[in-house]
């Protein structure tokens, strides 16, 4: 496969090609589909770097006014067309009356629909558990708000969230479950995930515990499909979406205060506890690093009692100096 001459490419990107150069490019892109694709991809990227000029507000408002003017003209045209014949005038009256009838019923229905939604909120302290009409379980963290309909009509289950919530979604293949946050939305079929979407914070986060979810920015920042134990964060200011590998159940810890460990060794456990209890844990090299612990620990309990409980599975001795906990091997 031949390469396209750099000079020609430069002229092409700048839209300064001569007729001969265009001919050469045309021959080149007709050589293979890949050639064509790579050229147009390069051109797209080249122009994407100039995207800000498409966000020009002056041009935008001119275009918007032109559009609204055109819409206004079209509306007048419809009305004057009706006025041409007396007969049409009667028809128009009837149409308008029907239209009013429709708008009224539509408004009433909309009004009723809005009555049919429920908003659950939590105060500064405390977590609330809610069961949605489809059986989905939601734990609402403190200072959060969840709005959902009394009944899930239509093809999807749409709810909105301000704040943080943990979801155990009832599977329903035919009705995707969509949570709209203030910067990001999540679409799932049936899974368990945690969604943090606080208006006061720049970063929105979704952590997936089980299943798959699609998360996307509400302002087209992109779409990401998550696998379990992945977390996507969206920075509202930069619009950047990033995915991290995490222990997702820790992000959902607040909902039941249970810390699950699954065949974890002392180093993994220490890392988790350091984060949760905000302490430093130092492990002596003599402690058995191969021994593992499995089980669930209640977050409410003190770090000392948690470590004591673990020392039955992984033998170590605990001593504490200020904020650091030292784990050393048991002397025999």
């Amino acid at each position: 496969m031949s390469e396209l001459d750099d000079k020609i490419l430069e002229h092409f990107l700048k839209d300064e090609c001569s007729a001969e150069e265009l001919k050469k490019i045309d021959i080149w892109i007709n050589e293979s589909k890949e050639n064509a694709e790579s050229l147009f991809r390069a051109e797209e990227i080249y122009n994407l770097g100039k995207y800000s000029r498409y966000e020009n507000t002056e041009g935008k408002s001119i275009a918007e006014n032109a559009l609204l003017e055109r819409i206004g003209k079209e509306k007048n045209k419809i009305i004057s067309r009706r006025g041409t014949l007396r007969w049409f005038r009667y028809a128009a009256v009837i149409i308008i009356m029907i239209a009013i009838g429709f708008t009224v019923t539509y408004k009433v229905r909309r009004h009723m629909l809005s009555v049919e939604t429920i908003t659950a909120c939590t105060g500064e302290a405390g977590v609330k558990q809610i069961i949605l009409p489809d059986g989905t379980k939601v734990w609402l963290n403190h200072s959060s708000e969840l709005t959902y309909p009394l009944k899930f009509d239509g093809g999807k289950r749409l709810i909105t969230l301000k704040g943080e919530a943990y979801f155990e979604v009832t599977p329903d293949k035919h009705k995707p479950f969509i949570v709209r946050g203030n910067a990001m939305s999540v679409e799932v079929l049936g899974t368990i995930f945690n969604f943090k979407s606080k208006q006061s914070e720049d970063i929105s986060e979704v952590s997936l515990i089980r299943g798959t979810v699609k998360a996307y920015g509400n302002r087209h920042e992109g779409l990401i499909v998550l696998s379990p134990d992945q977390k996507v964060s969206l920075d509202k200011r930069s619009g950047r979406m990033t995915v991290h590998q995490v222990n997702a159940s820790l992000d959902a810890l607040w909902h039941d205060n249970l810390i699950p460990f699954n065949n974890s060794n002392i180093e993994e456990i220490a890392k988790t506890l350091e984060r949760l209890y905000n302490v430093r844990i130092s492990i002596s090299s003599k402690v058995n690093k191969k021994a593992t612990y499995s089980g669930i620990i209640r977050h409410g309990s003190s770090i000392d009692s948690v470590l004591t409980q673990m020392s039955y599975s992984i033998p170590f001795r605990i001593s504490r100096i200020k904020d650091t906990l030292y784990l050393s091997s048991v002397l025999r």
């Binding site: 064509a36 147009f40 994407l48 770097g49 920042e221 992109g222 619009g239 950047r240």
Partner: peptide, 26 residues
């Protein structure tokens, strides 16, 4: 040929357009 690259059922150019991190990379 360019129009064919931008045909609505070709996901790539549209996703590129919406991809802000791509722009930031440029």
């Amino acid at each position: 040929k360019r129009a064919d690259y931008y045909r609505p059922d070709n996901d790539e150019p549209i996703k590129n357009m919406e991809n802000i991190s791509l722009r930031n990379n440029i």
